[in-house]
């Protein structure tokens, strides 16, 4: 088991190095995508700033707290985007064009191969904004920081990013039956827009969906709440980990069933 993980990590590194070589050839490409994502986030920050220019608090949330949650939400999203972006291609064209054959003929796990194949540097745009927002809003938030808490942040962020990955695996797998599911992934993925803001501004229905059905609330609001208030670590962090494991398991189960239903395209 341990040796397999080491082997997988080593292979993932080789994949990433290959991708980076590709980027040195198209340097402009890297900048366009990253700058685009960076600007997209900046526009939303202007939006929030305009609102807080007129009102001191949004349903009891202060400017820097909203910024903290916003920044926190970007980092798991960016991590998943950076490492596992290729899952989008499964739903959009890999299955439809029959290119999935390639993964089945290699001596490594097809899911691992698909996920590791691409290294999407565009994600640095979101990552940079997330880190800037966190570091700008932190000084004004009265929380004591110790080494334990820093470790918790890292754990929470890693598991939160698995929620994204799990949802992407599950929805991408639908393509094995329908040939094309990219837009289903898109629809689920867009739900994450809700959790950039504190979820108690929404009504009960939306809040329940974000917590129990498409649990994006665990990628930002709940873990961020713990770091903002120091309350309820067992629920806020613990449940993030549990939910991430559940979502990932469901995703992989759908994938495993789907891969059996896969039919290649063409002659």
């Amino acid at each position: 088991m341990f040796r397999e993980i080491l082997r997988a990590l080593k292979m993932h590194r080789i994949f990433i190095v290959q991708e980076l070589k590709r980027f040195t050839e198209y340097k402009g490409d890297f900048l366009t995508g990253a700058v685009g994502l960076l600007l997209a986030q900046l526009c939303n920050i202007v939006f929030i700033s305009v609102i807080f220019g007129q009102i001191p608090e949004l349903m009891g949330w202060k400017y820097n707290e909203v910024m903290f949650i916003y920044g926190f939400s970007l980092i798991p999203k960016a991590l998943d985007h950076l490492f596992f972006d290729n899952l989008w291609s499964v739903g959009y064209f890999i299955v439809r064009k029959g290119d999935f054959d390639k993964y089945l003929t290699r001596p490594i796990n097809p899911l691992f191969h698909v996920m590791a194949e691409k290294f999407q540097v565009d994600a640095f745009g979101e990552m940079v904004i997330g880190i800037i927002l966190l570091s700008c809003s932190l000084p004004s938030i009265e929380v004591e920081w110790g080494i334990g808490k820093v470790l918790l942040v890292i754990v929470a962020i890693i598991f939160a990013s698995f929620i994204y990955t799990g949802i992407k695996i599950g929805t991408a797998s639908i393509a094995f039956w329908t040939k094309r599911s990219g837009n289903i992934t898109f629809m689920f993925y867009m739900v994450n827009d809700f959790v950039k803001y504190p979820i108690d501004i929404y009504n009960n229905v939306v809040r329940s969906v974000l917590t129990y059905i498409i649990p994006f609330a665990f990628t930002s609001y709940f873990p961020a709440l713990y770091f903002l208030t120091g309350e309820n670590p067992l629920f806020n962090i613990g449940m993030t980990i549990v939910v991430a494991l559940i979502v990932m398991t469901i995703g992989v189960l759908i994938w495993n069933r789907g891969i059996k239903a896969y039919e290649s395209a063409g002659s």
Partner: peptide
């Protein structure tokens, strides 16, 4: 000029 169509298209749409 740009080869990254997704990136340049998104950049344009955002702006």
């Amino acid at each position: 000029v740009f080869k990254n169509l997704w990136g340049s298209n998104m950049l344009k749409n955002t702006v």
